[in-house]
Amino acid sequence: MTQVSMTVNGKAAKGTVEGRTLLSSFLRDELNLTGTHVGCDTSQCGACVVHVNGVAVKSCTMLAAEADGAEVATIEGQAAPDGTLSAVQQAFQDHHGLQCGFCTPGMVMTAVKLLEENPKPSEHEVRVHLEGNICRCTGYHNIVKAIMAASGQDVGAIAAE
């Protein structure tokens, strides 16, 4: 067993984990942050994306012990303390960028990182950045539209698929 300590969504978090415990499992099972979804356990779907020290990572591919001492941001940390949604979350809601919602946390976390790195991405750049995040419901059109809207761009000209 290993002691781990990290800052998650701005708050100190610690626990005792087995060496094989994945970060996704630690977040969900030990910290009760169930917004980080586990869809495949093989790093294919992207539902488990979180930020570790400012880098978007698939938390099902990282051991909790590897995040010892790290700053971790999850979907639960994206909204303001009063519950006001972030710009990306609000855009997903406004532009129907979700259906079943299972992929949404990973999509939002991926989008947040994209907009930090590229505040005004093109539609093509959004689509390329979403590679590695799978949605089985939406066809991606409204997800792309939501991300572009969150960047402050006019999305009226985006053609329907």
Rank of each mutant, 00 (worst) to 15 (best):
M1Y: 09
Q3W: 10
N9K: 08
K11I: 12
K11N: 15
K11C: 15
K14Q: 10
G15L: 10
G15Q: 09
E18M: 10
G19A: 07
R20T: 06
R20Y: 10
T21P: 00
L22W: 12
L23T: 00
L23V: 01
F26T: 02
L27H: 01
L33S: 11
L33N: 08
H37S: 14
V38G: 03
G39M: 12
G46H: 03
A47L: 04
C48M: 04
V50P: 00
V50M: 00
V50I: 05
N53W: 09
V57S: 03
V57K: 04
V57P: 01
S59E: 08
S59H: 10
T61N: 14
T61W: 01
T61E: 11
E71M: 12
A73N: 12
A73D: 12
T74P: 06
Q78C: 13
D82W: 06
D82P: 01
G83K: 05
G83D: 14
A87P: 12
V88W: 01
Q90D: 14
Q90K: 13
Q90H: 07
A91F: 03
H95Y: 10
H95V: 06
C100P: 10
G101C: 12
M107D: 11
M109K: 14
T110F: 08
T110V: 11
A111N: 07
V112L: 08
N118S: 07
N118K: 03
P121D: 01
S122G: 08
S122R: 12
H124P: 15
E125I: 04
Y140W: 14
N142Q: 05
I147E: 05
I147C: 11
M148R: 02
A149M: 05
A150P: 02
V155F: 00
A157M: 05
